[in-house]
Every structure is written in structure tokens, then in C-alpha cells.
Design a binder for these strands. Structure first.
Lengths: 224, 224
DNA sequence: ACCTGAACACCGTTCAAGT
DNA sequence: ACCTGAACACCGTTCAAGT
């Protein structure tokens, strides 16, 4: 926030304006992609001078953060399912994965910014809560959460690669017809030319990571 | 590549020039950060007109890809250690992690671009090879590799967050003093305000993922 | 307190023109 | 084949000025 109002503010009607800006920005991103969110573009979209955004929100960095955070607040309200706390930990992870891909332009916007974790802010809190319910507390809960979210984030980045243009994808994938690949098994060489079954790989890996971090469920029959 | 020469080229002395450009670009990125790599900046660095880069390399997308690939070729030559194939799979993963953080500006450049995987291109091939040695072949080898690299990549992104400015970091971390955190255990709440022990968490998670993907080592006593 | 217009210092990209 | 200068259409940001 630059100077405007904010949470600590006196209210007035500036708060309304700031929210308007963020909502419009979010709509712009979802409709036309992360790179459409420029100060000038957003300003004309709002019928306002560019500098008005600076007054209400701040510079582009702050705009992006605020937009992503706003999105995270919406998405974080999704209820979590699962009969056991461990199941609910898994479910939060799947929720982050799913919503990140559903709103991939917001995800991309967040990634461009190093704020990859932000759009799942509320969901991270939820995960910490469920981890506590499994008996993982304190620094262990934090580290467990970071391990899970790091892996989820990595899979999301991998999944977003599917949106690249064919040429860009080609340019940035491992080349099996290259120099050093000749000693690979032909089956492996051929498999490497095709994309992985990411959803299935994600699910399997997620389970392994959660297993490594959450103690074995000793009272599986306790919750119904 | 735009039109210039390239691998398929007739040689001449243009090839030399293209390599010069990439080396200079790489040096620029390592010295002054990913965002210093602009067409204009690189051109003045080379004492050449901006358009010359277009002729030899192509547009910025192609420049970035080429620079990252070149870096990946260097880094991919690092020998891999380990007595068993499984140990060597782990070692490749650690190598990707370590070199990505050592050359974090190149990593950032690659990430900005969705080419996160590219700087580890050669290393991915190495990993595929070692996976085969553990008995994982074909689509299973590909999926195993993707699982491991996705997680490694996620941890790298998490580690790079440490470079953010304090304000940006503050803005983008989960707020425990927020609304919904009051029901957390105080120890967890406090732990969440501090960064995770990423290297240790990485090592533990990596082992779990590799275990889930590589069959149990039947000759455990083979290594010493 | 809120908003504007004009200006500054950058970008990537294209294209006709030179040798 | 290789390189240039000039121009186009964008950026983010600042700042003095308005109400």
C-alpha cells in the first residue's frame, strides 16, 4: 500500500474504490491473461488516470500482491473434505492444485512475482490446522506444510508448461534425439517425447510426501 | 533461432558471434541479475546495435532460451556421485538443487520464462539414465523423473523466496496474526513466523519421493 | 483527500537502408 | 551475409498542478 487507506484506514469511500480496482484487475487477468495487467491498461479499463491506481493501491508490485491476495481470500473459503485429518491434509493439497490450474492466469501472475504461495494463503492456514489435528505441531507442522506446498507448487509449474506454445515447449524440453541420450532404453527415449500423466503422478507423489510427514494413522476407525 | 546460422549453419564466423552473445548475456545475468538482460543493455555491452542480436539469436524469448540452455550445458557436465544407482538418482536431484541456488539469477531467468526445467536439461537425462539402472524403464522412468524434478523445482522456488525484499516477503507470507489463525497451537503460530529449515526439509522430502518411485534396494549391503 | 496531464527513462520489435 | 539508425508502440514511475 502506498499511502492511501488500507485496513488501518479511516474508511471514507476510498476503500470502495480500492476494492473496485482489485476486482477489475482480477477480472482483467482471468479474461485476458496475466500479462494484460498493466497500470495503463487497468486505468483505461476503469476510466481513470494511471496515477489514480498509484494513489489507491501503490506501484505494480503492490498491485500484483493485492490482486493475488484478494483471489486467495475468495478461493480459501472452499470447504475441505475428508473423514480423517490426514485425508483433509491431502484434500487441501489437492484443492491448491486444482484451483491453481482452474485460475491459471492468476497463478501465473503470482509466479511472475515470487508470490506463488500467496494465492493459497488461507489454504495454507487450513493445512496447518489439519496437520495439528494429526499431531504435528510447531516447527514440525511448519516444515511439513512447506514440504507439501513446495511439492504441490512444483507440480503446478510443471502443469502450466502445457500452456506454452508448441515452439516454446519444443525449445525447452529435454531433447532425446540429442547427443547423450543414445544409451537410454528405447522405451524410455520414446516416453520422454511425450508429456507425463501429471495428475496421476501428482496424486501418487503427494501421498508419498504426506506419508513421510504425517505419522501413521493409529486410530483409523475412530472417526466414523 | 531467427534466421541466422545455428547448429545447422554453414559456419563462417557467425557461429562465433552467436556464442559470444550468449556468453556475454550469461555473464550479464550472473553479475547483475536476470532483469538486467534486455536487448538494449546486452547490445551496448557487446558494442553492437540491438538489431544485431535479432539477426544472430532471435527475439528475447529465443535469447533467454538459448542463454539458459547454454548454462545447462555447462552445469550438466558435473559428474554424479554415489555407489548405487539409487544414490546417484538422489545425487542428481541434489545437484539440480545446489546449482540452481548457486546460479540463482539464471534460475530466476529460466523461471520467468516457464523454462524452469531447461537449465537442468542434461541433468534430467542423467537422472533418466540412473533411473534405468534402478530398473525403472519407459513411461515409469519418465513419470519418476517428472515427479522428482517437480518437487526439486518446487523447493527451489521456495528457496528463492529468501531473496525477496523484507517488505515483499512480508506481503506474501501467510499472516498468522490474521483472522483465522487464532485456533492454532501457539507453538505452530510462532513457528510459522520463521522460515523453514529448507535444506533439511528438502533432503527428507527428496528421500521420500525417490523411495516412492524407485523400487527398494535389494542389495543394500553393497555399499560399504 | 483525491485525481489529472505531462514528462522521463526505459522496454521489445520492425523495417528500410547500408556494405 | 551481416549490421545499422530510426521509428513505432508500448511500459512503470514521478511530480507539479488542479479541485
Amino acid at each position: 500500500m502506498a499511502s492511501g487507506n488500507g485496513a488501518n484506514g479511516t474508511g471514507r469511500r476510498a476503500g470502495i474504490e480500492a476494492d473496485e480496482i482489485l476486482d477489475r484487475a482480477l477480472a482483467l487477468v482471468e479474461a485476458e491473461g496475466a500479462e494484460a495487467l498493466t497500470m495503463r491498461r487497468l486505468a483505461t479499463e476503469l476510466g481513470v488516470a494511471t496515477t489514480t491506481i498509484y494513489w489507491h493501491i501503490g506501484n505494480r508490485d503492490e498491485l500484483v500482491t493485492a490482486v493475488v491476495r484478494r483471489h486467495g481470500e475468495r478461493v480459501g473459503r472452499t470447504p475441505v473434505a475428508g473423514d480423517t485429518a490426514r485425508e483433509r491434509v491431502l484434500d487441501v493439497a489437492r484443492l491448491i492444485w486444482r484451483t491453481s490450474l482452474e485460475h491459471r492466469e492468476v497463478t501465473r501472475l503470482a509466479a511472475e512475482h515470487g508470490a506463488s504461495t500467496l494465492h493459497a494463503r488461507r489454504l495454507e492456514l487450513t493445512m496447518a490446522r489439519e496437520l495439528e489435528a494429526t499431531g504435528v505441531i510447531g516447527a514440525a507442522a511448519r516444515d511439513a506444510m512447506r514440504a507439501i506446498t513446495a511439492c504441490v507448487g512444483g507440480f503446478i509449474v510443471a502443469a502450466l508448461r502445457a500452456d506454452l506454445t508448441p515452439e516454446a515447449l519444443q525449445r525447452t524440453t529435454v531433447l532425446v534425439d540429442d547427443d547423450g541420450a543414445s544409451d537410454l532404453d528405447p522405451a524410455t527415449r520414446e516416453a520422454l517425447t511425450e508429456p507425463a500423466e501429471l495428475p496421476a503422478v501428482f496424486e501418487a507423489t503427494l501421498r508419498a510426501v504426506v506419508d513421510s510427514v504425517v505419522p501413521a494413522d493409529l486410530s483409523a476407525n475412530a472417526y466414523l
